[in-house]
Design a protein around this nucleic acid. Structure first.
Length: 478
RNA sequence: CGGGGUGUGGCGAAGUUUGGUAUCGCGCAUGGUUCGGGACCAUGAGGCCGCGGGUUCAAGUCCCGCCACUCCGACCA
């Protein structure tokens, strides 16, 4: 089909992946640029996706006993500086408020890049007894990090996220929390967003500033680059000591609690786009899609068509399906292209011929398969089709992930594999920073994670030849 | 922050070399004909030419500065 490429065209991802991504973001009406670099407008359709992710996670967080709070936007400089590693990690990208009205402030205030310090300060006031533990807080907010280069969803200076912060009596309990929350992300991405993940631990180099251990879920994009899709940190009692957070334990001894934090951001929407999208635009898994079914009446001027289409719409809605009708007077082709671009999982066409046959035609966004559905079975079949699309997208993404994990036994081989195929390159690793730096220097890859699921590939680290401690995944990351 | 590219109605561009009345396509509005994969006709609205200086009788065009977007690096979710 020779398409009119004049206006609503999306660059093919094979031609220019980055441009394809930007095109999808803009043309599917997810974002718009604002007047300030790195600050993006989430349009209704884009925000609706975030709201769906948000409500899935929020419900799960609450099921697990977390409470939502709201912390201030601004952090006094002195507070930010209390934990040394943390401030060193974030100082380079802080933005500061220095004026109040026309007066210069006595102390400059950092616009939060993350809220650990605020939570710590607060906890130092309110934690008194072992009976107060655990404290499991979460907040939904936006944060600001003065990035050099920015892209919609993937790297904004301001971005929406959630940050969970918890305090526990023991290290074991805190570590369990950290692992549990990582699993919540993994479950949400895999089940809800149909994005398969690799779960693992970050190396010391890639660890969050101030953390003792950082867990991560890593996803693979269409272009075989990696996306860190959610992280969960165990802090030990380092922050508690730095901020003077202590409590009386059962023996009335002043004790420092163990702390965690974990976060996921709108960046995951960038991941969603780059995992499922195609050259026709966005492709959304039904679970997260703001519109799951778009009803398109064909030849809507013919008697009865529009009425019947609205009837179907009402039936779908009554069955709990997020459905909408496109009764605009645009041509059929235009409508098809438009809703494909916006990634709606299922298009339901109903025309006079269908009505004669007592059916409609469902078209799957993931594979364009056309499925005739008897009107009498509509509310049974549509959910089945939506499930099939969800599963189809996951399977395709899993296939992309599995077929792009390669094993290497030397730095040279790792480099070649990365250049040739992209993806994750797995090798053994001695645990040394020098080898990590060498991989970055010579092969352009960073360590993605030390996967929970380990394999024994060699006895020694292929980079330095010393005894190997772990199997590790390398990749080029967003 | 270093290097490249780009900024002209909502979108995509021509015009810049050689200064001289703001152009085209799409979209948008109204009316009509259409309608099973990006339809067509007619009429119409819409522009501080990214921003600020400068040169000139005259600047979208030349000069200086700045900003934004974008790509490639370094930094990062």
């Amino acid at each position: 089909m020779a398409k009119d490429k004049k206006v609503e065209q999306i660059t093919d991802m094979e031609v220019d992946f980055a441009q394809w991504f930007t095109d999808v973001c803009v043309k599917a009406e997810l974002v718009d640029y604002s007047g300030v670099k790195g600050l993006f407008i989430l349009r209704p359709y884009g925000y609706a996706i975030w709201e769906n992710i948000q409500s899935w996670l929020d419900r799960r967080f609450k099921e697990l006993g977390h409470e939502n709070v709201s912390m201030p936007l601004l952090i006094p400089e002195s507070l930010l500086q209390k934990e040394k590693d943390h401030v060193e990690g974030f100082a380079p990208e802080c933005a500061w408020v220095t004026m109040g009205g026309s007066e210069e402030l006595p102390e400059k205030l950092c616009i939060r890049p993350t809220s650990e310090t605020l939570f710590c300060e607060h906890w130092s006031h309110v934690l008194h007894s072992w009976r107060d533990l655990p404290m499991k807080y979460n907040q939904w907010c936006s944060v600001l990090r003065w990035e050099k280069t920015t892209r919609p969803f993937l790297r904004g200076r301001e971005f929406l996220w959630q940050e969970g912060h918890t305090l526990h009596a023991t290290a074991e309990e805190a570590i369990q929390e950290t692992e549990q929350m990582l699993e919540v992300y993994a479950e949400c991405w895999e089940k809800f967003l149909a994005m398969p993940v690799v779960r693992g631990v970050k190396t010391e180099k890639e660890r969050f500033a101030g953390a003792e251990r950082t867990y991560t879920v890593e996803c693979m994009m269409h272009d075989h680059k990696a996306l860190q899709a959610g992280t969960s940190h165990y802090f030990g009692d380092g922050f508690a000591r730095a901020f003077g957070i202590s409590y009386s334990d059962k023996e009335n001894k002043q004790t420092y609690p163990h702390q965690t934090s974990w976060g996921a951001s709108t960046r995951i929407i960038g991941g969603l786009i780059m995992t499922h999208g195609d050259n026709n635009g966005l492709v959304l898994p039904p679970a997260v899609a703001p519109i799951q079914v778009i009803v398109v009446p064909v030849a809507a001027h013919k008697p009865g068509v529009l009425e019947k289409a609205n009837e179907l719409l009402a039936a779908l809605k009554a069955a709990g399906i997020r459905a909408r009708i496109d009764d605009s007077d645009n041509s059929l082709g235009w409508k098809c292209a438009q809703w494909e671009m916006k990634g709606v999982p299922l298009r339901l066409e109903l025309g006079p011929r269908d009505m004669e046959n007592g059916q409609c035609v469902c078209v799957r966004r993931d594979n364009f398969e056309k499925v005739p559905v008897a009107l009498a079975e509509l509310t049974e079949k549509v959910p089945e089709l939506l499930d099939a699309v969800q599963q189809g997208l996951f399977d395709k993404a899993k296939q992309n992930l599995d077929s792009h994990i390669f094993e290497a036994h030397s730095l040279e081989e790792a480099k070649e594999l990365q250049e040739k195929h992209g993806g994750f390159i797995k090798t053994m690793w001695c645990g040394g920073l020098d080898c990590e730096l060498a991989m970055k220097e010579k092969a352009g890859m960073t360590s993605r994670c030390i996967p929970f699921v380990q394999e024994h590939l060699d006895d020694v680290c292929p980079i330095c030849g010393k005894p190997a401690k772990h199997m590790i995944y390398w990749g080029v990351a967003y």
